[in-house]
Design a protein around this nucleic acid. Structure first.
Length: 600
RNA sequence: GCGCUUGUAGCUCAGUGGAUAGAGCAGUGGCCUUCUAAGCCAUUGGUCGCAGGUUCGACCCCUGCCAGGCGCGCCA
């Protein structure tokens, strides 16, 4: 296939075929948007349904139109296909010849990006995820934001967007006041409660340990629910802190530092990186100006002593207004998020994503509406900042309620990892796997398997819906799971290294039967899947694809023994196909933040 | 009351207006002197919540109803 083909094989195959069909369809009057070829599972590799849709407008019989369309391909174009036929009421079914599919495989293997195109117009995208709070330990509720957000930053970067990820720490709420009051009660002699700094400044050392903070905060939080006087003091301390009380500020900086260190520790197993470690507090300086601006523009109104911003939904119906300033003059999280919008605009963002629990949907609808209906979202160079709430559902237990331990407590994130590592280790030992490996290797493999199980398990659920986490399914490592994918990828690695040991060389891809053909076809689907994940922010599509690819690999593996294959050209071709498979799996899993160990 | 969301196989869930609605688990029956059986092959299992409507064609779009979940101005 060295001569020029009538399609561009570097394109995603369905798009390449669409272009071909559109060229011929145009002559028949079929509108371009109806010429789409799509991957099919109806016996052929691709199908085009355009004739059915176009027949009415063209006043043609759909079946006849389809036949005429198919027949209008040139001989050279026809030669691309092993089958090209019209079925049923007018479906055009297409399957590429093995040579074309092999040529496509070779192109992908030679390409760093596996023929995944970059987006036509890259954007500068800020992604807020994590959603951790100072003084609150990470729990299972932080899992989804962390790994969905991380996957999205990886996918967006891969397709060429300029991504800035921000952890957006919850460092500015009432919980800060509670903690200050709790510290005051236990250690009233500390210098932080005076109105001015001591002569030599505040001590650099934190007055409390992480353990202190983790003990004090839950107690204070629980107490605030019952003790009104305490709640009032905490509220006052919060206000003082926000007004700039030097001692409280100094103390607060210790809270933040302790929490950041703990967050880094807790997310370390997931390999998640943030570009920015900003918090709500960083947006606060923008608030006075923002409020003044809305007041001057007449967008803010005084209502029952509070400043609100009236907003409307897409249909122009009034929504619950946005609370800008409370009666006591304090800002709310509405205000804080509006200030963040202003920050993003100043930082030159085209788009801001908020990977946050679906229960906050109304909140974001309000903030986004306010940004769109005032001047706040307007970018200096024109247009508005695109705002998107990438919402995700709740992780539930078997009872359909948010996941808890048997005793009803929230599950700490580190315990989730711990449980998964234990399960992975038990499974490795049970199977007698890695029996010859040293302890360090076994530990690192158990860790890799556990993280893959957690990430894939979570990401393979549609992000917007709730899902039931079943710990025994989760630990079984069978079926559509992260470990299955790792296992598939490890077996590819194993073959490639075995072939290398024996000096078996790879060569041009040769497809011979249903299994290698199915694998090559599956491998060609990556670009379309990545594009969909990028457009819809839906990692589960990538999970689904990688699982199907792994199944196609496993079937091929079972039926075609590469190393033992005696036909040298066939063996060499299969080695190339295996190499492409490994590259596709590691790339795809990499986009999910999952690393493939050398063995397992 | 208003808003959002969900209802698909025994269980957990996918499903771009296209053909006979899919997967995993569970169930049943096979396959390891052969590159890692965490695997492969075969197979059982459906009123797509209900009723209308639009369409050549609806799990998908529209309307109504039933049932569940979540949210709804001074917590974040």
């Amino acid at each position: 296939m060295s001569h020029a083909l009538p399609i561009d094989l570097r394109l995603p195959l369905d798009r390449a075929l669409t272009a071909l069909l559109a060229r011929r369809g145009a002559a028949l009057g079929v509108p371009e948007e109806l010429c789409a070829a799509q991957y099919s599972n109806k016996g052929s590799q691709f199908q085009c349904n355009g004739a059915l849709a176009a027949a009415r407008a063209l006043k043609r019989a759909p079946r006849q139109l389809a036949e005429e369309w198919a027949a209008s391909l040139s001989a050279e174009e026809r030669a691309l296909f092993s089958t090209l036929e019209v079925a049923g009421p007018g479906f055009i079914n297409l399957s590429l010849s093995d040579e074309v599919l092999a040529a496509r495989s070779a192109l992908a293997l030679a390409d760093e990006r596996l023929c995944v195109p970059r987006v036509a117009s890259p954007e500068r995208v800020y992604i807020d995820f994590g959603g951790y709070n100072v003084a609150k330990q990470l729990h299972i509720g932080h899992l989804r934001s962390t790994i969905i957000g991380d996957t999205l930053q990886r996918v967006l970067r891969f397709v060429g967007d300029e991504v800035v990820s921000d952890v957006h720490l919850g460092d500015w709420g009432t919980q800060m006041g509670m903690l200050i009051e709790a510290v005051r009660e236990e250690r009233p002699g500390l210098p932080y409660f005076e109105d001015a700094a001591p002569a030599g400044g505040f001590p650099a050392e934190s007055p409390l340990s992480l353990a202190d903070m983790n003990r004090l905060y839950p107690a204070a939080s629980g107490r605030a629910k019952e003790d009104e006087a305490f709640r009032a003091r905490a509220s006052l301390a919060t206000a003082e802190l926000q007004r700039g009380h030097v001692g409280y500020r100094a103390l607060w900086r210790h809270f933040v530092a302790l929490s950041v260190a703990e967050v880094r520790h807790d997310i370390a197993p997931f390999g998640v990186e943030f570009d920015l470690w900003c918090g709500e507090s960083d947006a606060q300086p923008l608030i006075p100006e923002l409020v003044a601006r809305l007041q001057a523009e007449g967008r803010a109104e005084l209502s029952e002593g509070a400043w609100i911003v009236p907003i409307a939904d897409e249909r122009g119906e009034p929504m619950v207004p946005l609370m800008l300033l409370k009666r006591d003059g304090g800002a709310t999280y509405h205000t804080s998020d509006l200030a963040t919008v202003v920050m993003r605009v100043r930082e030159g963002a085209d788009r801001a994503l908020y990977v946050v629990d679906a229960r906050q949907e109304m909140h974001f609808r309000q903030v986004f509406a306010a940004a769109a209906q005032t001047s706040l979202g307007a970018r200096a160079r024109g247009g508005v900042l695109a705002l998107e709430h990438v919402k995700f559902g709740t992780i539930n237990g078997a009872d359909g309620r948010p996941f808890k331990t048997r005793s009803g407590d929230t599950v700490k994130l580190r315990d989730v990892v711990e449980m998964a590592v234990e399960a992975a280790r038990a499974r490795l030992e049970e199977g007698g796997l890695l029996a010859d490996a040293d302890e360090e290797t076994r530990a690192s493999v158990a860790q890799a398997v556990a993280v893959a199980a957690i990430k894939f398990g979570d990401l393979s659920n549609h992000r917007a819906s709730d899902y039931v986490l079943n710990l025994s399914d989760f630990c079984s490592f069978e079926g559509k799971t992260g470990p299955y994918l790792l296992y598939a990828a490890v077996r590819v690695k194993s073959i490639l290294s075995k072939a290398a040991e024996r000096g078996l060389a790879a060569g041009p891809v040769v497809l011979r039967g249903e299994h290698d053909r199915a694998l090559a076809l599956a491998l060609s689907r990556l670009p379309g899947v990545v594009a969909q994940v990028h457009a819809k922010k839906t990692p589960h599509l990538l999970c689904e694809y990688l699982f199907e690819l792994s199944q196609d690999w496993s079937a091929f593996y079972q039926h075609c023994n590469i190393v033992r294959e005696e036909d040298e050209a066939q063996r060499a071709g299969w080695l190339s196909l295996a190499a492409l498979c490994l590259k596709t799996l590691t790339t795809g899993l990499g986009l999910l933040g999952v690393e493939v160990p050398e063995r397992m």
